[in-house]
């Protein structure tokens, strides 16, 4: 059976990619941010997950508002990045995993999740920045990635309770897959930030840290928020917390916090890195 060995939260902002492309990791601005990552990289290199399920939001590379899915899942054997229009480097192809992807897609539709299922899908910085953060130098080709995309752009968006339920359903689907695979789950984006309007630039450090605490010990508490609450408390793009909540939903067994690094600001955001080790529930 496939086994979820852990969950990771991380920022996915494009400025990180530029910083890495320009070798700025040790500059005063970036150092406190990048210093958080080596323990997580070490854990990944030691545990060697076969598959990464990665929750992110597309920022207008693959999906436009002509046809905007609430939840989309990739089922391809390879995904390509492409020009996003504002000059972050295009990164090499990402390896996919179609067997487990289809298994999850079947299980989700059976459970009443109305997925948009993608056999070809361009993946943007929301997915590529986290991979490059974990395996710098684009050394992620050995790991198979299943992209799961959540609408965080256009209201109405799925509510936190729904994204948590999606995560739980994916957790159950992985547990019922009959191949021995080690799976890690990434929840990317956030934390508090607002890019648009007169309120641009708000960051809510206290709320972000409370969210990280709750992601460990009481994720259900986070599902009580509506997206409107999140916009109010954490800014217009603070709804990206939904990806972190979905990740936590997949951890249906026991979790233990192994590492955390909160730093603000990075670009306009509060950045929360956290590593949760997961033990699958006993059958």
């Amino acid at each position: 059976m496939a086994n979820i060995i852990g969950g990771i939260t991380t920022s996915h902002i494009p400025a990180i990619a530029n910083a890495m492309a320009n070798g700025l990791e040790e500059t005063p601005y970036w150092k406190p941010f990048f210093d958080g990552y080596p323990p997580v990289r070490d854990w990944l290199n030691e545990k060697k997950p076969d598959v990464i399920i990665l929750f992110y939001n597309d920022h207008g590379l693959e999906f436009f508002i002509d046809k905007k899915p609430t939840f989309a899942i990739g089922v391809a054997d390879e995904y390509h990045n492409a020009d996003e229009g504002w000059g972050i480097p295009t990164i090499p192809p990402v390896t996919g995993e179609s067997d487990l992807s289809w298994h999850i897609a079947n299980s989700l539709v059976e459970d009443g999740f109305d997925m948009t299922i993608c056999q070809e899908m361009k993946v943007d910085h929301g997915l590529t920045v986290p991979l490059n953060l974990m395996w710098p130098g684009y050394n992620y080709g050995h790991v198979k990635v299943i992209p799961v995309c959540i609408n965080c752009e256009q209201h109405p968006m799925p509510q936190p309770k729904r994204t948590y339920a999606l995560g739980q359903a994916i957790g159950r689907a992985v547990a019922s897959f009959d191949q021995d695979l080690k799976v890690a789950v990434f929840g990317t984006g956030g934390m508090s930030h607002q890019l648009d309007g007169e309120r641009a630039g708000i960051i809510n450090r206290e709320f972000d840290i409370d969210c990280l605490d709750k992601l460990v010990s009481d994720p259900e508490a986070l599902t009580k928020y509506s997206n409107l609450d999140l916009v109010e408390i954490a800014g217009a793009q603070g709804v990206e917390l939904n990806m972190l909540i979905a990740m936590r939903g997949t951890l249906i067994g026991e979790v233990k916090e192994l590492h955390r690094n909160y730093h603000a600001p990075i670009s306009n955001t509060g950045s929360g890195l956290m590593l949760l080790e997961h033990t699958m529930p006993k059958k």
Partner: peptide
Amino acid sequence: IVNHLIEHDFDITVCQEM
């Protein structure tokens, strides 16, 4: 209808051109 559906856990794709 779109708002009502998402609020009630239907995960639709919303199309402004189709």
